[in-house]
Design a binder for these strands. Structure first.
Length: 161
DNA sequence: GCCAACGTTGGC
DNA sequence: GCCAACGTTGGC
């Protein structure tokens, strides 16, 4: 069991969008960074991930999702019509992977970026590092639980630990 | 819109 | 393999 933080611009795909999907599940496509891809490859089904809203009026952690399918090839990479198209990736030799994520639990409140920064217990959180741009990062158990406390997550989350 | 930080690209 | 140029990210 590992914990992660995954960024998305809410104007493109928000936490509520995930919750409103018919199966509350979405493939996390479009990651085009090797380090982030490798983190996704390290994920296992059942891992929990914080859904982080970036590039928006209120950046912060919006809720919790669960990895529901391990890494598999990202088809948007070989779709010429996709913004995430990458000619270096082919069906025969896929370069980019994605995982499926499923809504897991809401927070009572969004945990704003400034609250993450203000918390001494989160001093080493990777997403707070200067200039960090990784869209997928690992989070320690302690950090994950701390952020859940800040967000006052529902009991469903507590049971999953 | 600005700009710092970082990853990627490509010439050499 | 170096490194400058470029593009992108993301907070402010």
């Amino acid at each position: 069991m590992h914990f992660w933080l995954m960024k998305s611009e809410p104007a493109v795909f928000a936490f509520t969008d995930l919750k409103q999907r018919p199966t509350r599940t979405e493939p996390w496509s479009g990651v085009r960074n090797y380090q982030a891809r490798n983190f996704m490859r390290a994920m296992t089904v059942g891992d929990l991930a914080l859904f982080y809203h970036s590039s928006c009026p209120q950046p912060g952690v919006a809720g919790i999702m669960r990895v529901s399918r391990a890494a598999y090839p990202d088809p948007t990479a070989w779709d010429a019509a996709s913004e995430a198209f990458d000619p270096k990736s082919t069906k025969a030799r896929p370069l980019w992977d994605m995982v499926d994520v499923t809504w897991h639990a809401d927070f009572q409140t969004l945990v704003p970026l400034e609250a993450l920064r203000a918390d001494p217990a989160l001093a080493n959180l990777l997403v707070l590092r200067r200039g960090n741009r990784l869209s997928v990062t690992p989070v320690t158990t302690t950090e994950f639980q701390r952020i859940c406390t800040l967000g006052d997550a529902t009991v469903a989350t507590a049971r999953a630990w």
